[in-house]
């Protein structure tokens, strides 16, 4: 069959574009997004809990807007807005990364919120009844238990982000889907290219989800 031999031929010639450039940029973009998403998520979560209503409302509004609009639209906003806001020259990669981070931060803040809320109220009450103050209760009792709810959900978020970075190809930032577009343009073999990146995406997320499962099992074993 031509289809399979074409795939072999494409890989032989363009493996660097797919595996080095494509996978490299996809992972880089995902890692940046997760790292800043977690920091931003924490800030948004804290913003929702501080005793200052305007900050609460602002954070809730940001989360609602981000959750209620398409990812691709947010990437467009980042692509056109970030260069206007920054005084220096920025690459499309950075613009897209900023948009991805804000998007991820909003989802991560919800992960924090639900993870912390899922810790039984009785745990807090018991800690307070012993004389621990609010901060001690949060750091010694609630958070250590919330981590077990939060980490698996964060792993899923990471996997989602890897797939969502494919939208960044709209701006040709060099990740896997961009690699697909490039090679397709050179070879005119659409299905073959799509198959190749599809397999790569699947392998990436599959490995990650297996790692997360192993990690979860270890967390459970510590219970």
């Amino acid at each position: 069959m031509n289809y399979f031999s074409n795939i072999v031929k494409i890989m032989a010639k363009y493996w660097k574009v797919f595996l080095l450039e494509g996978v490299g940029y996809t992972l880089l973009l995902s890692l940046i997004t997760v790292a800043f998403g977690v920091i931003l998520g924490l800030l948004i979560y804290l913003g929702r809990t501080v005793r200052f209503k305007p900050v609460n409302w602002l954070c809730i509004a940001i989360v609602e807007v981000v959750r209620g609009t398409p990812m691709l639209l947010q990437l467009y906003v980042g692509y056109f807005l970030v260069p206007k806001l920054l005084p220096f020259e920025v690459t499309p990669f950075l613009c897209v990364a900023v948009a991805l981070c804000i998007n991820s931060g909003c989802y991560v803040s919800e992960i924090f919120r639900s993870g912390i809320q899922a810790v039984d109220r009785g745990q807090t009450e018991a800690a307070r009844s012993l004389g621990l103050n609010g901060r001690q209760t949060m750091f010694r009792i609630v958070l250590p238990q919330a981590v077990k709810n939060i980490l698996p959900a964060l792993g899923n978020e990471f996997i989602t982000i890897i797939k969502e970075t494919s939208l960044a190809s709209t701006f040709f930032v060099g990740e896997l889907m961009t690699a697909c577009l490039k090679v397709r343009g050179n070879t005119f073999l659409a299905m073959e290219c799509i198959t190749i990146v599809g397999v790569i995406y699947f392998v990436l997320t599959f490995i990650l989800s297996k790692l997360m499962n192993a990690f979860e099992r270890r967390l459970k074993a510590n219970d």
């Binding site: 745990q123 018991a126 009844s129 004389g131 009792i141 250590p144 238990q145």
Partner: peptide, 20 residues
Amino acid sequence: INLHRQKMGMVFQHFNVFNH
């Protein structure tokens, strides 16, 4: 109140032992 709570032990219906 935290200081005074130290002097008042409480036992709950659902135990509320620290699971971690």
